[in-house]
Structure formats: C-alpha cells, structure tokens
Design a protein around this nucleic acid. Sequence first.
DNA 1: GGTGAACATGAATTCGGATTCACATGGAGG
DNA 2: CCTCCATGTGAATCCGAATTCATGTTCACC
Lengths: 211, 211
Amino acid sequence: MTRFSTRGDHILEAARQVVSDGGFRELQMLTVAASAGLSVGAIYRYYASKAKLCAALVARVSSRETEVLEAVAASGAPAPQRLADCVRTFLRRALLDRRLAYAMIAEPVDEAVDAERLAWRGRISRVFAGIIADGMADGSLRSTQPDVAASCIVGAFMEALIGPLSPEQPADDGRESYVESITAFCLAAVAPGSSIEAIVPDMSQRGARDE
Amino acid sequence: MTRFSTRGDHILEAARQVVSDGGFRELQMLTVAASAGLSVGAIYRYYASKAKLCAALVARVSSRETEVLEAVAASGAPAPQRLADCVRTFLRRALLDRRLAYAMIAEPVDEAVDAERLAWRGRISRVFAGIIADGMADGSLRSTQPDVAASCIVGAFMEALIGPLSPEQPADDGRESYVESITAFCLAAVAPGSSIEAIVPDMSQRGARDE
DNA sequence: GGTGAACATGAATTCGGATTCACATGGAGG
DNA sequence: CCTCCATGTGAATCCGAATTCATGTTCACC
C-alpha cells in the first residue's frame, strides 16, 4: 500500500506475518508465498534463498528494535534511570508480539540467520554496557565488568520474557507489574549499596581487562 | 567397557560425544552410528527414532546436573551463600563442556526434546526460587517475586555462560574471575540494601499473587 | 499492433536426512 | 550339526521441503 515499499519489502512483511504466528518453523517458501499473495518462484526473484530471506527479516526487525533502544539510551537521564528505561522498553515492545520476539531472539534457523542474531545481541549488549560504564564513572552504579554485566542483563530479561518458564500470557493487568519485576531485578544487580562482598570476592579489578 | 553399561548407554554416550562437538546440528543417525562403531540400523534397535534418542540424551545429562545442583542447594548454609554456590557450581561444570552445555540449554531440536529441556529448566528454576523464598523469609534477601527472580537468574548466567556473546574460551586464568563476576551479578540482584526504589516502584506486593 | 525485457507461475526436480527392510552373523540350546 | 533368536548391516526407500525452469503474462516503448 505505502507508496515507497518495494516488492521485496512486501515479501518481507509477509514473512514477518508468518513468523509472528508459528515462528520460523512455519516459514516455508510456500507459506510465505501464500501470505504474500505470490508464487514460490516470485520470491526467488527477490531473495536468492530461504536463508537470505530469513536473514533479511531478522536484520530488518532487529534494526528497528535497536534504534528504539539506542534512542532511549541516549537520553540525558542518569545511568540507572536509562538502564531501567531500556529494559522496560525492550520488554514492553517484545510483549506485543512474543512469538516474533522468541523467533528473533532464540529460535535457531541456520548459520546466516544466527550471524544476524548474534550481531543484534551484540548491539543490544553494547548499549547496556555503555550505560553501565557511565554509571560506574559517576558512582551511580556499582563496580562491575560492564560487558559481563550487560550480558547478564540481556540474558535475564530475555529469559524472563521468552524463556520456557515465562508465563504464557501475562494477564493484561499483570503485564506491567511483570515488566517492573524484571526491571527491578536488572537494576538491583548493578545498583550500588548491596552487601555481597562477604560472599563474592571483589574481582572487578583483577579480571577486568587482559588483552 | 564398564560392566554395567548396556548397549543403549553406549549409543547415548556416542551421541553425547557428537553433540559435545558440533551440537545437535551434527547429530545425524549416520554420525552417531559412526561414533558408536555401529550401523544406522542398530541404533534403531535401541531407540525408535532420532527424537527419542535426543530426548534420552537430554534427560540423562540434565538429570545428572540437576542432582548436583539440588545437593548444593540443600546445604544448611544461609540463603545468599547457597545461591552463590549454586550459580558457581552450575557455571564451573558447564564451562567444562560449553558446546554440550549450549546444546542442552538452548539449541532447539524438536518438540519432544524441547519438552525435556523445559522440564529441566523448570527444575533448575525451582531450586533458585526455593532459595530466594528462604532468603526473603529470614530477611537475608530482598523482597522479590521468587519465580521471576529465579527466571532472571537462570537467564543471566546462561546467557553470560553460553550466549553468543560470551567469550569463546575464557583464558584459564580468567575463568574463575569470570565465574565470580557472573555470580556477583546474580547475588547482587536479589541482595538487600540496594537503592532502586526511586526508579522502580515496589511491585512485590501488588503483582505478587492474583489467582 | 508488435516486440522484448521484466516479472510470475507452479509442476517437476533435487536434496538432505530419517527410516525401513531383506539379508547376514554368531552363539546358545538341543 | 542344526535351528532359532538376538543382534547387526547398509543399501534402498521415503519424505518434506528448497530450488529450478519451461512456460505464460504485463507493460513500456516503438
């Protein structure tokens, strides 16, 4: 419909549709073709292979999400606030389409797609690592290894979000409190002031950087 | 070799071998057969299908790990200590064979296997939720929703451990500090005393239980 | 109207494995 | 020595998609 969308975009949109209910498992060329109102062969005119199509899909969706996240991270607010905002933003957006989120985050497809996914996670993680480093610099966050902490945060909210144990469909009213619980967890993990030294030795210096 | 191991176990062991380098992606009946020194047909005498074989493999490995974890969790130590010990234990053991760990934790195969994997994660998560509940009861851990916090912890250390961004092979000397960093993160997330209320509203009551 | 390039179609083909099965092999019991 | 059953073999078969391609369409331009 939109004037500027090319045929290739149309196909990508159809693919997104398919993945968003049924995941990559159901992304077959036939299914996509049907959903796009085209024939199988036509798809090959725009994407050389299924793998390429999948990779393009992941790239497109993930870049949208990354932009949003980076925008939030760039607000001038204090680090802890930005951290919480990023987590919340990611969670809320993902909750709008969990099947797609799961597919984007975890469902394996093939190497090309995995590479795309990996790059995405890298970008997300870097956003968090940046915020954490900021917070460490001004003392608003406790001392950690930013990259490790960032990985943990990403893992924590992704697992809580789409892990096999997350509630199938948090009730509408519970959704927001669910988001806040997860956000609180992530924030507390890097907030200053908790008393863990007795149990975990301070390694933030020793293992910090050795290459 | 061992007297008591049946032929079925032998095959399972061969499968473990294959998965432990190459993951489930390379677990083909032909590959397993080769690794077991048998023919394809022979495997089918012991496992009705590839899916069954995979499920058996996951079940076997995961039950070993679960037992270890539950034993650690059952020590009489204070909750924060047990929490840290469980995380450390899991991480150290997983670091011994990361490819296998990744496969067991994350690599999807098919529904039957996923069910097995899900059950496993459930058990792990329950172990953590139990410890957290204990800690909340005696005040040694801050107030959270134990099941959500447990999911986050599992996600955090799994991602940091085997996520696509985790260091391919932490240097021998860095390994222990890596483990400690992750452990510290998990512990800090549920330790009391951090100041996050200004940013994250306390939802521990409101959204706690509504069914 | 005629021509060709770009675009579509979908049945036929190919392909990567899983699964089957007709045919050994070996050894325990008669 | 013969039979039978448990066990093993691996080539043949099957199956579910991906991929190709011979055969139409469309349409812009002459």
